[in-house]
Amino acid sequence: MSTTTPPDRRGDAAPEPALVWRGCTKTFETPGGGSYDAVRDIDLVVPAGRFVSIVGPTGSGKSTILNMAAGLLEASSGEVESFGAPVRGVNRRASYMFQQDALLPWKTVLDNVALGLTFAGVDTREAHDRARVWLERVGLKAFTDRYPHQLSGGMRKRTAIAQAWIVDPDILLMDEPFSALDVQTRQIMENELLNLWSGSGKAAVFITHDLDEAIALSDEVVILGAGPGSTVVATYEIDIPRPRDLLEIRDDPAFIDLHREIWGRLKQEVERTYAAQNERESA
């Protein structure tokens, strides 16, 4: 196992779920001195090795839920557990892919990918060797010495994938990682992500507002209600067999049926969000 594996790692046979949210509420203070709940009483379980997407209308606190699992945000009440241990500070079992560019602009692609190993104290040569292997895997072998601004959006996302995967995390947290890409690049990236993930045994939590994307990638889709104070309103099992070809899956009858069913539920929440928005604006 890699040197990044934390010492408190349990035996492989332990059936502990990768992530459990127990009655998690997150309250934010507003600048005016008031406060509001971004999410309320979130109860959710992500078993190890499972791909779960969280979908919800704008402002439903999707990122808040993810950040609590990452340990970047602390729940105001309730608790997040990861593999049986409560999350205190940054979750060392998880990697995070952000919606925005999170590569360090002053480091080359190679140094960016090697970053997690550098932090773990791996010596530079070995870190670079392992980073090269990852860059080859994501098709960026020829771009190791470039700086992030010299890459296209899709290439930056590949670098971010390599950066997140090189530390061999047990959990992948992804916050709309491909939302800034054009539709074609996005489908290619989704396919590549799925190829990397399948058989890796890693748990994945994927935030998106795109239901197509959620169904195509996941074992389970979780629907959040309209915010603020949103909570889990429904979960759906996605039983489309794997391996899936994401470039074809949107024509699959099973996909179409699931999409119709889930969209029926999601639509209510989206409509509620817009109704609330209009009310606020006219008030």
């Binding site: 940054v90 995070y96 932090f119």
Partner: peptide, 29 residues
């Protein structure tokens, strides 16, 4: 950028790492 700091922390950066790899280069610009 908050995201750069969060990303580095998720990758296992301690305070000294953040200083050397994130804050110093950013301030140097």
């Amino acid at each position: 950028d908050r995201v750069l700091v969060d990303n580095a922390r998720m990758l296992g950066a301690k305070e000294s790492h953040l200083l050397r790899h994130v804050f110093v280069p950013s301030a140097l610009t």
